[in-house]
Each structure stands twice: as structure tokens, then as C-alpha cells.
Write a protein that binds this DNA or RNA. Structure first.
Length: 572
RNA sequence: GACUUGGUAGCUCAGCUGGUAGAGCACCUCACUUUUAAUGAGGUGGUCCUGGGUUCGAAUCCCAGCCAGGUCACCA
């Protein structure tokens, strides 16, 4: 028990120990640092600044974020959900009587930056004109035991000591949000985007639904799924990689338009633009085609951009992007011809492979015609589309869920929306011919067997059964929500737009090293013990011994004492 | 996965060819009743990411590993 106590104490920094000490001093004064009572807040920092009234009585609450103490008076900043406001603590205002404890002890000595406090006071303006709350009474609402990072802004608006280390910011997003208002703003915009899309769809009568996240067959996209296991059914289940096939089942079931914000999971690599879980929005509307969906998409995005940023324009890195509709529509063949000079129309697989080789694009025998075209597009064209552009009419082979093009059986009625060289949306005239769909699934299976990792290796027979009951002509679209919000908030990294991006687990620091435990176990048997004897018993090398015994004495588990000229080790 | 940069106090960072670990802010003590990066004086605070190696001596050099960022590849 004792060991545990000392070790845990060792891990606390001086600042943390001081705050714990303050905690017990507060309790000694009869102050509960974590009171249960409701605190009757009637204002926010934002409201106070917007509708300022000299002398108005207000009750606010928030975190203490900075303090400027000048003896018997002090200015501080209180931060609530809306921002910060200056508060003024004056000893004689807070303690009108003889007892000045509340100011001298509680406020000056026992409060810390980061503590939540409630304040009753009156509005006034300082000599410099700063809108301020004159504190008449205050109450500790919650004590902070860990010190926050403290970025400060100087007179020129320059930020000093900003909390910037990405690892710490992502692992401790709570701290990031407290001290970095611009980070909070990103997530406010994220939610605005979701709300904007919802209202756009709802106004048009489309219906928000929920479909399974645990699926027996992971369909609707080509991606490696996470596998889990259901105990009582004793079957494998997969975390969804897409929700497409379920939403189409609902169109079969008779809904005119359904949409879902779908948390998807893909067991693939992580990088600046990929997180294992991410959010897609998928919408399906019956009796429409992909031409209609392009109109719908550009109107949707213009609306969303304006709702989020107040303008259709957005800055992304060095690019200025304008989401104002309409967007250019370019077929894949036109795009390839424009950027490579090669016309793919009517060419055989071998001719295209030859062309790709001449463009120095890596190809292999597992690649079919569609895959080759996709490679050429990805390599030579994609990056050129900065302003929102619809790329249309993808090769059939790449699009197993998409209806064949009405004018060309080698193509499909599909578009992707490119922004800054990246895909933001993907849409089809949905394939609703059950026999064609079955053949496409089988072709995918064959591609998968041929070694194409992107091809789908599962056939969802229940989905085919649904199609056999009849699905009306339907157009569907998926939008990568994380990617879209990256564009709208000018963030190059997906981690900046997710509250809690996936990270490798933090390693727990061991309380005692193996060598320290070895020494400690000997001490438990023989205590005190001569230093030389102890060292011999451990059998440790000089270096290891030195390190281990210093570790123990430092954490005050053991101490070395000199008695009669002999060094003796004993536990503390 | 490859390459690359980094990990030193609560935060931001410095630390040269190896020689007793530093600064600013924060924190603690004192002074200061309208300041705003408040101010003045004094002080405390370190597993230099981890583990090996070289060396009389390693934050520094070498090897291996962990974590993170970036670039590229792969992948939606």
C-alpha cells in the first residue's frame, strides 16, 4: 500500500501537488470544491458584451482563464461556452465586513486558472473602457487539479506559448478545445454543415433513416472491413463500410427519398485524409437520374457553404474555391483526352494498356479496361480539377452498382464531384435491373479471384432479392462529410475535423522498473540491509544498480543512510 | 510500407565540436484597490521518449525500439 502511495505521488508534478493541497485547504475552510447544487446562471459572456447595460446585475459561470492580481483588487477572465469576459475582484466589494478571507485566502490563494467559478456581479466599464463584471459574490463550482496550457495574446494580437503539439492536442482534445478557440470554431462549423444538409433534405421531403452498422455482409463499397463476432448467433459480423445497399432496400420498400449520415469503418491505412471511422452522407431519390442529381448536388453544396461560412467561397491552402452553382460537367473520356491527348473511346483493353505504359503509368495483368482508365485518370487528370467539377460517365467495370449508360454500354451513369483534385461526392443512376446486378456481382467476384483487391468478394443475395421485387429508377449520392468539412474549414488533415481522431494507445508508464522491483522485494525480507550486501544480492551490473537504487531513493520508496561509516538501505 | 523531421520544466522553446540542464510564461513568497502579454523583488520546479552501446564522463555520438508530424507509395 505504502509503495503505491509513494509511486503515485512521484508521478504528480509540483504544480499538481500544489493544487491538491489547495483542495484540502478549501475543504478545511468549509468550502466544497465540487458542489452538487444547481448554479443559477442567467447570462453568457457573449450576451453581456452584446447588450451591455451599466450597473446591470448578472449571474455567470465559467472557467477562470487568466488573472492580474494587484493587491486588494484583481482582474481576471472568465471563459464560458460563448467566449470570455473580464471580471473584476475587489476585496472590499466581495468582503464588506471585517473578514477578508474570501478574497485574501479563497480568491487569491486557493483559486487557480482552470477552476470553474460562478459569479454574481454588476456590469461596468473600466477606465480603459473594457466591459467588465464587478464581482459581488463568487462561488467555486469545480476545482481543476491539472494546469491548463496557457496561450496568451499580446497587444499586437500575436499568440505566445500556443498549445500546438498535434499529438497532445488530439490525445487531449478537451484541453485543446478549452485553450484554442479556433479549434472549437471548426467543430461548430462541422455541426452547422450537418444541420444545413438535414434542413436542405427535409425541406424537400426526404426522410432521414438509420440502417445497420453491424452487417453480415459488408457491401456497397470496395474496402476491407472490421470483423467482429456475435456470440449468441455465433456468426461473424462486419462493421459497415457503406450503407448503400440498405438505403436501396428502403427505396424498394416505397420511400421516395431516404438519407443517412453514416458512420463507416474501414480497416485500412491511416494518414492525413483517412481515419478508420469516418462519416459519409448517402441519399437516394426515386424517379431521378444522375443528371438530376448533379443539379441537386451543386445546389446543396452552394447552400451548405453559405450556411457554414456565410459565403459560397472557401479558401483551401493556396486555392480559392467557389461552391456557387453550376459546376462544369466533364466526361471521363474528355478529361483524359484533355490532359493526355489520348482518346479512349472505342479502344480495346490492350490499346489502353499500351497507352498507359507510354504515359509511364504502372500497370499489371490483373487490371481490366476500367481499372486502366481509372489509373490514367487518377494519375494524369484528377489533380487538375480545383474548382468544383463533375466528372461523368465512368467505365462499367469500376461501378458494379451503377446503371449502364443510356448511350454507351461500356460506360455507366456515374459522376464524381472533384474539388481541389479530391473526390467529394460520388453518385449514380442506380442499377435496378436485378439480373444485370447479379451478373455485375459475379464479375466482381471474378475480378477479386483474379487478384484485384478493390473488387468486392461478397455477393449480397438478399439485396438481389430486394431488387427482384422491383426498385423504381433511382439516383443516389454519397458525400464524404469529413472531406467536405476539411474544404470548408481550410484543414488539410482529417484529424483536425474529428473530435477524437484514432491514435495509437498511449503507453502506460510503469510504476517500478524490473530492477527496482528486484531491490524492493529483497528489502521486504531484509530491512534495513547493508548497501553492499543488497547490491550483491541483486546481481545487477554497476550501471543498472545505480539507476535502480537512485530511482527508489528519488521516489522515496527507499533511503540510503550512513551509520557508523556503513551505508545502509532501508524502506522509508 | 519507404523516406524525413521532431520528442528537454505545466506550456512554448534554446542547449555549439561530449564536461555540473537553461530562458520566457505559468507556479510559490512578498509588495501593489480600474488592469489587460499588468508591474517590481525573491524562489521552487527535470525519467532530457525508452532500452542498449561507446566514453573517465552522454540531453548531445552510435545501434535498436516507441510515439507523433510531414512527404511519397498503397488505399477511398
Amino acid at each position: 500500500m505504502q509503495t503505491y502511495f509513494y509511486i503515485t505521488h512521484m508521478q504528480l508534478s509540483e504544480l499538481e501537488l500544489i493544487r491538491r493541497e489547495k483542495l484540502s485547504q478549501l475543504r478545511a475552510l468549509g468550502i466544497n470544491p465540487y458542489p452538487a447544487d444547481l448554479y443559477p446562471v442567467d447570462n453568457t459572456s457573449k450576451k453581456l458584451k452584446e447588450s451591455f447595460e451599466e450597473g446591470k446585475k448578472v449571474i455567470i459561470a465559467g472557467r477562470l482563464m487568466s488573472r492580474r492580481i494587484q493587491g486588494k483588487a484583481s482582474f481576471a477572465e472568465l471563459q464560458d461556452a460563448d467566449g470570455k469576459i473580464q471580471v473584476y475582484f475587489n476585496r472590499d466589494e466581495i468582503c464588506p465586513g471585517e473578514d477578508k478571507t474570501l478574497y485574501n485566502e479563497v480568491y487569491k490563494k486557493l483559486l487557480d486558472i482552470g477552476d470553474f467559478i460562478g459569479i454574481e456581479g454588476e456590469l461596468f466599464k473600466t477606465q480603459v473602457g473594457e466591459k467588465t463584471v464587478m464581482v459581488k459574490n463568487f462561488m467555486l463550482l469545480s476545482k481543476a487539479l491539472k494546469p491548463l496550457p496557457q496561450p496568451r495574446v499580446d497587444a499586437d494580437g500575436k499568440v505566445h506559448d500556443a498549445f500546438t503539439d498535434p499529438e497532445q492536442r488530439y490525445r487531449q482534445r478537451y484541453a485543446d478545445l478549452v485553450v484554442n478557440p479556433h479549434v472549437k470554431e471548426v467543430f461548430v462549423k462541422r455541426t452547422k454543415l450537418f444541420n444545413a444538409m438535414r434542413s436542405f433534405f427535409n425541406e424537400r421531403g426526404y426522410f432521414e433513416v438509420e440502417t445497420p452498422i453491424l452487417q453480415p455482409i459488408p457491401g456497397g463499397a470496395a474496402a476491407k472491413p472490421f470483423v467482429t463476432h456475435h456470440n449468441s448467433l455465433d456468426i461473424p459480423l462486419y462493421m459497415r463500410i457503406a450503407n448503400e445497399l440498405y438505403l436501396k432496400r428502403l427505396i424498394v420498400g416505397g420511400f421516395d427519398g431516404v438519407y443517412e449520415f453514416s458512420k463507416n469503418f474501414r480497416n485500412e491505412g491511416m494518414d492525413r485524409t483517412h481515419n478508420p471511422e469516418f462519416t459519409a452522407m448517402e441519399i437516394y431519390v426515386s424517379y431521378k437520374d444522375y443528371n438530376w442529381m448533379m443539379d441537386f448536388c451543386e445546389q446543396l453544396l452552394e447552400f451548405c457553404a453559405k450556411e457554414v461560412n456565410g459565403t459560397s467561397k472557401a479558401t483551401f491552402g493556396k486555392h480559392e474555391v467557389d461552391f456557387k452553382a453550376p459546376y462544369p460537367r466533364v466526361t471521363m473520356a474528355q478529361a483524359i483526352e484533355k490532359y493526355t491527348g489520348f482518346d479512349i473511346t472505342g479502344k480495346t483493353e490492350d490499346e489502353i494498356r499500351e497507352a498507359a505504359l507510354q504515359m509511364k503509368i504502372e500497370v499489371d495483368d490483373s487490371m481490366g479496361k476500367g481499372k486502366l482508365i481509372d489509373e490514367i485518370f487518377g494519375e494524369k487528370c484528377e489533380a487538375n480539377f480545383i474548382q468544383p467539377t463533375f466528372i461523368t460517365d465512368y467505365p462499367k467495370e469500376m461501378s458494379p452498382l451503377c446503371k449502364e449508360h443510356r448511350d454507351n454500354p461500356e460506360l455507366t451513369e456515374r459522376f464524381e464531384l472533384m474539388v481541389c483534385g479530391k473526390e467529394v461526392a460520388n453518385a449514380y443512376s442506380e442499377l435496378n435491373d436485378p439480373i444485370d446486378q447479379r451478373e455485375r456481382f459475379e464479375a466482381q467476384l471474378e475480378l477479386a479471384n483474379r487478384g484485384d483487391e478493390e473488387a468486392t468478394a461478397f455477393i449480397d443475395y438478399d439485396f438481389l432479392r430486394a431488387l427482384e421485387y422491383g426498385m423504381p429508377p433511382t439516383s443516389g449520392m454519397g458525400i464524404g462529410m469529413d472531406r467536405l468539412i476539411m474544404f470548408l474549414t481550410n484543414n488539410a488533415s482529417i484529424q483536425e475535423v474529428l473530435f477524437f481522431p484514432q491514435m495509437r494507445p498511449e503507453k502506460k508508464k510503469v510504476d517500478m522498473t524490473e530492477d527496482e522491483k528486484l531491490i524492493f522485494n529483497i528489502l521486504k525480507v531484509e530491512n534495513p540491509i547493508a548497501l553492499e550486501a543488497l547490491k550483491t544480492k541483486t546481481g545487477l551490473s554497476n550501471k543498472k544498480w545505480d539507476k535502480a537504487i537512485k530511482g527508489l531513493t528519488k521516489s522515496k520508496v527507499a533511503s540510503v543512510e550512513k551509520t557508523d561509516g556503513n551505508l545502509v538501505v532501508k524502506t522509508s
